[in-house]
Design a protein around this nucleic acid. Structure first.
Lengths: 200, 200
DNA sequence: TCATCTTGTTAATGAGCGTTAACGTCCTGC
DNA sequence: GCAGGACGTTAACGCTCATTAACAAGATGA
């Protein structure tokens, strides 16, 4: 039994490879044999670890949404009382996630509809809570922003931050730190610009 | 034979419904019978109009990329000599597209991998040209922005503008005009913020 | 030493689905 | 008025693919 120190458990290996493959070719586009092959076992051996292909996707998506929400809440609590700092921390956390787990980010808004009703509802609820967390903070930093506009702005900034999978992999970028800084500035600039509607 | 005035040709009906269904449930997630049913004919009747399911997706994606590029070139030519105006016009055109053809925007960066090699290459080439068009204009407006950063910024703004499908359909938005204006301000604000790296 | 759990394997099953065949019908133009 | 194309229909084929069955082999522990 693989412990904490030596790499990943078989289950975790499978989830990681499945995430990569799902992100590359879509849930329906990848077969169980391929997922098995990616971890060195073949085909139906996966069923010793998961109830089915659907269960892998469900666990991935619920995990993503949960991680985002949990991390967001933690950051909000850490910088509580300082909305500017909370917003910066949320942006930073989301960027880390987008840069470090590109396949998961891709899955996150691409394969949600393939889930069983109950799982989909759960994921949507987690996503909604995450959005609301952002909306609240954004409205504290920019009080002039009405709630519908704030919500739209938050979705737009998510789109901005989640664009990392579309950027060519290696050399065309300013490096990880530079990309993170660029995205951070752009996100804050986008919110700032969204809020100037108060003057009109 | 349906002419320009009365609604859509059968082919166009099919493409429209196929786009909607592909966007909702993914290319592999929707069957030809469903597409047929959506236009009132059933299943294999589609093969009188298209060589196959793949051909529908190919025509949709090539069409999208082509429209975006053509429109972008036209706008660049119309406002030539005034980079600020060109950039605003590009942003406006992209927003119109994102708001009026949400299903197509969704397909655009979701199902590209399901194409035959030749079609995929064509679409990628059109997309690349479109990106380059933006990058050139952005670098004229913000000369301090290095090319890799400009390219990353363009992708990020595409992500921002293409976020419309994630916003709840009707009442939660500030209305079409308001949403368009909001997205426009945010896009410009994001570029502006991207460019302030020169001061650091 | 022997039951048992874990973790695999390969072969079979069965459903879903894209595609083709074979066959009608209506409209059009000579 | 009738040949032929445009446009549909239903039935059948064949392939892919998730899932299950049946079976094996190494570790564990009484």
């Amino acid at each position: 039994m693989a412990t904490r120190t030596d790499a990943l458990t078989r289950r975790e290996q499978i989830l990681k490879e499945a995430a990569r493959l799902f992100a590359e070719r879509g849930f329906h586009g990848v077969g169980v044999d391929e997922i098995g092959a990616a971890v060195g076992i073949s085909g139906p051996g996966l069923y010793r670890h998961f109830a089915g292909k659907d269960a892998m996707l469900a666990e991935l998506l619920v995990g993503i949404s949960g991680q985002l929400l949990t991390g967001g809440k933690r950051r909000a609590a850490e910088a509580a009382g300082n909305p500017e700092a909370v917003l910066d921390s949320l942006v930073e956390g989301h960027i880390d996630f987008a840069l470090d787990d590109r396949p998961l980010i891709t899955l996150h808004d691409r394969e949600l509809d393939r889930l069983r009703d109950s799982d989909r509802k759960l994921v949507r609820q987690l996503q909604r809570q995450y959005v609301e967390l952002w909306v609240e903070v954004v409205r504290e930093v920019y009080p002039d922003l009405a709630e519908p506009a704030a919500r739209a702005a938050v979705h737009a900034v998510f789109g901005l931050l989640n664009s990392t999978p579309h950027m060519g992999r290696p050399g065309s970028l300013p490096g990880r730190a530079g990309t993170a800084a660029l995205l951070h500035r752009m996100a804050r600039g986008a919110f700032e610009a969204a809020a100037v509607s108060a003057s009109a």
